[in-house]
Design a protein around this nucleic acid. Structure first.
Lengths: 146, 146
DNA sequence: TATTGTTATACTCTATAACTATA
DNA sequence: TATAGTTATAGAGTATAACAATA
């Protein structure tokens, strides 16, 4: 790659481009870290929500992860076949199914969370703790616009 | 969506997740802004590099955009068929082809850059100028690790 | 031997429409 | 009439291997 690739290009000043490239790095690292556990970023994300206490429906999960509800079906199917989550009926709405992690699911999630944390840490290695906090705060506002 | 989706979840503290969600918003907005011009984010990015003075080869473009060289072939094919770019032989390496924007390509790029700028502006609406600069600086370091 | 562009192929992700059962 | 989950399908994006021309 020529040295010009690190500067002088209009895309370099484009926040959307930087966001895409940073995300691509992050995705690659996270998927590599999760592969030995049989997970990918998306299945890990669903598992993480199932571990939390929110008792989320598939619809909730779809909205939170910006996925189509039909995609969540396949992700939950996979996790359920591996006995990592169960679909429980929502007592207040018989249409809805709440996704809950099993004991095995919680255990795997712990390992997976640690693996992704290490991968992210390596990627953020050049940033001070305060810079990381600022980045997280700014990204939160972009990720969840008012 | 329940109110719990805005907080209390482990993913909420995960910078990689925030990066992915912010990027998804950004991609959706940019693709929508580019659609009337017959471009998508990836073809726009290739066009933008062709407009710059770097005289980049397809290999350079692939590396910069984190694409496989074989994907750049298809993107350049499309732009070339629409007479927005040309492939010029590199005098210093007969294997390589330099991708250069035509006059029409430059004109369309100008419109497209303005459209994406507006879309990004809407997305960053909640951020002050200084916050935007900080975000851009931090993302640059993640996008182009030393 | 290694690299550039290319073709081919398979897999993942994204987007949409339609169906069923419930609300 | 609208919503939750599901099925199906097509298009976009990602990843890999192999080949010809050239370095």
């Amino acid at each position: 790659m020529t040295s010009q690739l690190r500067s002088e290009h209009s895309l370099q000043a484009d926040t959307a481009f930087l966001l895409a490239r940073a995300n691509a790095h992050s995705l690659t690292a996270a998927n590599a870290a999760l592969a030995p556990l049989g997970l990918r970023v998306r299945s890990f994300s669903v598992l993480a929500l199932a571990v939390d206490e929110g008792r989320l429906s598939q619809r909730d999960i779809a909205e939170y992860l910006r996925l189509d509800p039909s995609q969540v079906v396949a992700l939950v199917d996979d996790l359920q076949e591996r006995h990592l989550v169960t679909r429980e009926p929502d007592p207040t709405d018989r249409r809805a199914k709440v996704v809950i992690a099993t004991g095995a699911g919680r255990k795997l999630h712990e390992e997976a969370a640690e693996a992704t944390r290490r991968a992210l840490d390596a990627m953020l290695g050049g940033l001070q703790a305060e810079e990381r906090a600022v980045l997280r705060a700014l990204l939160t506002r972009l990720a969840f616009p008012a």
